[in-house]
Design a protein around this nucleic acid. Structure first.
Lengths: 328, 328
DNA sequence: TATTAATATGATAACGTTAACATGGAGAAA
DNA sequence: TTTCTCCATGTTAACGTTATCATATTAATA
């Protein structure tokens, strides 16, 4: 059952395709009677204009690419959801691609999307493909980086202040008289992970505490790396009494590791980036740095729509502030 | 900086657009030399064919709509992620729409997507818009319902066995000698919620236990409704010793409610549908019915690709089996 | 040698819209 | 009456591809 076209509607209504188009787009002049007649035909045959043809003619795809490292990560998806609502409202649709943190896949994804002639690209990148992304921006596609950014790249970015939040986290632990603070940070290819690590280090430094190498471990944002970190810490002659963890999956790993080792979960005080969905049910001393995906999404949405509507002002660099929620 | 077209490439390479097209699609005959020459020009100018024009000409959008009630729900997104990987691999892209469980928004979304000429629709529906969905299927768009289904609709569906899982959950509690079992189920417009409720009831019935009305409460899959349910149960002269909860958010609410009321979390045994991300850290008696989003996604992906490749066999009805993970 | 088949290319007409231009009538202003 | 707008419509050429058809060259076969 092949779809009806504007020509079929025109024939049925006894007018030209131009008139149908005018009715569809509320443009130009159409007499009341003809308009009603056309609308009747459209309803009768349930005609739907072909958005692809329209896109081709208008040279506007009304589509937006969104590329992120993990589509099942609630943090990213809360951001994406907010953006999606906004875009749908404005008549745009989103093409999602999950890169699984894989730079090659990301690069392929970008090619794929530019072939689809996306009008904007919203990206939480792997950290690679710098040039490709700059080229996309130069070619006139609006690019908004979120969560993660590139230094020295003239692009709109919307991020959270990872440095400051991490620094505060460490200061919070210091205030609580912890002196041996373990740090488990993320892959240093990712800008957020770098900033968090840096914030934690500066926090210690400003307090006059020199970091011991054995107290700092690099993980890869997975549970397993959290488990490994805690195994390492537990073997030290002088264990840390507190841990700063750069992401929630690793924090989960920390607790799993403690459980495995038979160490009480509240024997160590933890501050972690990222919401742990059900953490308020935990019995132990966990503070979290609550990020704000909703606000991030709204900020991106606003900026995006502005750009799509032709705002050509200087690139913007929005930085939102996460907040620390202390353990009860 | 406007994009290069196939004509520009043809001019640069000194051949016709037809030849460029043949090179791009590896179709027809092209001599080795000309092919190399064309590829050189393509690389030199970084030419990318316009997928919109191609879609129009071929009458194939290569796009697939996916509509679900909550884009931040990890269950749905694990399914969606798996589908996305598969689609990307096959050269299709996904248009996501989040309906927020709102039937009108769903209906709009469906119109929006059919205008975009999606080749397939993957839907976890609100339960409304029956006719519209059937019409879409009749018009030749492949429709796959997942998680939730319609009865008496000839459509492909991929779901989990909610009835059986709920029944087993209740049987599990009965085995543990619970006799007063509270039930908190979801909105009865949603097929899964109906099936879960029904399964629980039959479980009780087969054990010869007559359900007391005050032990059954309808929630709306939110935390708040879990809290309300526990407030209600706690006021009963004879409190339930166990609870069957139809979804994880409500289960979370149950525990929040207990906490608020100062009742120990392990004073009641709970079986809940849906993974609670960090539940293995809980100290209390919670069993979960683990669903299998990954497998669901793969099943949908396979079916989808088969349909897109022209498999026109009878509609299928795949039902996967969740498994009960007892509390430790 | 003549015929056929395989290879290599080009010209062109779609695909379904919409924007630009053209046309014509009705009423208002000169 | 003539001229000028405002309406209301139609005609047509794009938008960037690809599929079909036509044509030309070369190689293989009879």
């Amino acid at each position: 059952m092949t779809k009806m076209t504007i020509k079929d509607v025109a024939r049925e209504a006894g007018v030209s395709t131009a008139t149908i188009s005018r009715v569809l787009n509320n443009s130009g002049y159409v007499s009341h009677d003809v308009k009603q007649q056309v609308l009747a035909v459209i309803r009768k045959f349930n005609y739907q204009p072909n958005a692809i043809a329209r896109s081709l003619k208008q040279e506007k795809s009304r589509s937006i690419g969104i590329v992120l490292p993990d589509m099942a990560n609630p943090y990213f998806m809360k951001i994406a959801r907010t953006i999606q609502h906004r875009c749908f409202q404005e008549g745009y649709h989103l093409l999602f691609i999950d890169t699984e943190e894989n730079p090659e896949k990301e690069s392929e994804a970008l090619d794929f999307l530019t072939e689809k002639r996306i009008e904007a690209l919203i990206l939480a990148g792997t950290g690679a493909n710098r040039d490709q992304i700059q080229t996309i921006s130069d070619s006139g596609i609006h690019v908004i980086l979120f969560d993660r950014r590139f230094s020295n790249l003239k692009l709109d970015t919307v991020t959270e202040d990872n440095f400051y939040a991490a620094k505060s986290a460490v200061e919070y632990l210091l205030e609580k008289k912890h002196e041996r603070i373990g740090i488990i940070h993320g892959p240093q290819t990712i800008s957020t992970a770098r900033e968090r690590r840096q914030g934690a280090l500066i926090g210690l430094e400003e307090a006059g505490i020199s970091l011991l190498p054995e107290l700092m471990i690099e993980g890869d944002y997975t549970r397993e790396s959290g488990i490994k970190a805690i195994q390492h810490f537990s073997q030290l002659p002088d264990r840390p009494t507190a841990i700063f963890s750069s992401n929630n999956e690793m924090t989960f790993g920390i607790y799993l590791g403690l459980q495995e080792l038979g160490i009480p979960l509240d024997s160590v005080e933890v501050v972690s980036f990222g919401d742990l969905e059900f953490s308020s049910l935990f019995q132990h001393k966990l503070s979290v740095i609550m990020q704000n995906p909703q606000e991030l999404g709204e900020t991106i949405g606003d900026l995006l729509i502005r750009r799509l509507n032709g705002d050509d002002d200087a690139k913007e660099n929005r930085i939102l502030m996460p907040r620390l929620v202390p353990s009860r």
